[in-house]
């Protein structure tokens, strides 16, 4: 008990309360400013990724993409494209986020990290809700099967969310340092999509290419998620430990640069 009342712990809990309050305030503000109050309002947070995923599922079905396995194309698209949106939207929304919220820093308690956390939370919530709603609809109309191992699906999803959050911190802080980061992020995001494991299974690739693709952390998350969903009907290649290590390093780098960016911030 005495530990809980030590000055450091008390100060930490007070800071935590302030941060929770600020992020709560930013969440409300962000939702209204981004989606407005007209028509569906905040529901767009979920509709947007849903429309993306549905569109991609329809395209892939129409193109009758040869994916050389027994997985139905819609299930393949929903699991794959939802995963991409989860990490890519986090990072894209945090790009230039400080600049867009610079004037808020006049309120001392609003810090760069709060702006990033708010946007990351919203993106993860939107992508997750979209994934769940689409899955439920397709399971009900029998276009998708129920996941074989819900635990693995959840594990893969959480790892992808963590990857998205850590990447977002790094990209967000990077764009505050230099606009070059923002310029580079767009082509990088575009080029990473076909390599991210969303549109293929690692097992379909030749051995040498497998080694290269498995260097990308998000590939492991998608593979884990699909193993959880489709079970033994697919052969997967992943290492959750490798992905977690990558995320840990990215998180550390992200937090470090967010703090540095906060220090050199110039408001106007």
């Amino acid at each position: 008990m005495s530990l809980l009342r030590s000055p450091e712990i008390v100060a930490f809990r007070r800071s935590l309360a302030v941060q929770r309050r600020v992020i709560g305030a930013l969440l409300m503000r962000e939702v209204i400013t981004r989606f407005g109050r007209d028509n569906f309002g905040a529901m767009w947070l979920v509709f947007e990724p849903m429309l993306f995923t549905l569109g991609v599922a329809a395209l892939w079905t129409a193109a009758a993409m040869n994916h050389g396995s027994s997985i139905p194309i819609v299930a393949f698209a929903v699991t794959g494209y939802s995963s991409v949106l989860l990490w890519r939207n986090c990072a894209s929304r945090c790009s230039m986020a400080i600049e867009a919220n610079l004037s808020l820093m006049y309120h001392r308690n609003v810090q760069a990290i709060d702006v990033f956390f708010t946007r990351i939370l919203l993106e993860i919530a939107g992508a997750t809700a979209s994934f769940i709603i689409l899955s439920v609809i397709f399971i009900v109309i029998d276009w998708m099967t129920f996941p074989v191992d819900l635990g693995k699906v959840l594990g893969g999803w959480l790892l992808l969310a963590w990857f998205g959050a850590s990447l977002a911190l790094l990209i967000g802080a990077g764009t505050a340092y230099s606009h070059v980061v923002e310029k580079l992020w767009h082509p990088a995001a575009y080029l990473l999509f076909p390599m991210s494991g969303a549109a293929f299974m690692v097992d379909w690739l030749p051995d040498t290419l497998q080694q290269v693709v498995l260097l990308l952390p998000m590939v492991h998350g998608v593979e884990l998620l699909r193993e959880g969903w489709f079970g033994n009907t697919v052969r997967t290649h992943y290492d959750a430990g490798y992905m977690a290590t990558c995320c840990l390093i990215l998180t550390w780098l992200g937090m470090h640069y967010v703090r540095e960016a906060g220090r050199k911030l110039e408001s106007r």
Binding site: R21, M28, R29, I32, T33, H107, N109, V110
Partner: peptide, 21 residues
């Protein structure tokens, strides 16, 4: 400078109050 153009005056009051508890 911290006003968001899409927020109403009341929204801005609420935001500031939330930030300061």
């Amino acid at each position: 400078g911290a006003f968001q153009t899409h927020l109403t005056g009341l929204d801005n009051l609420k935001f500031v109050c939330r930030v300061y508890g």
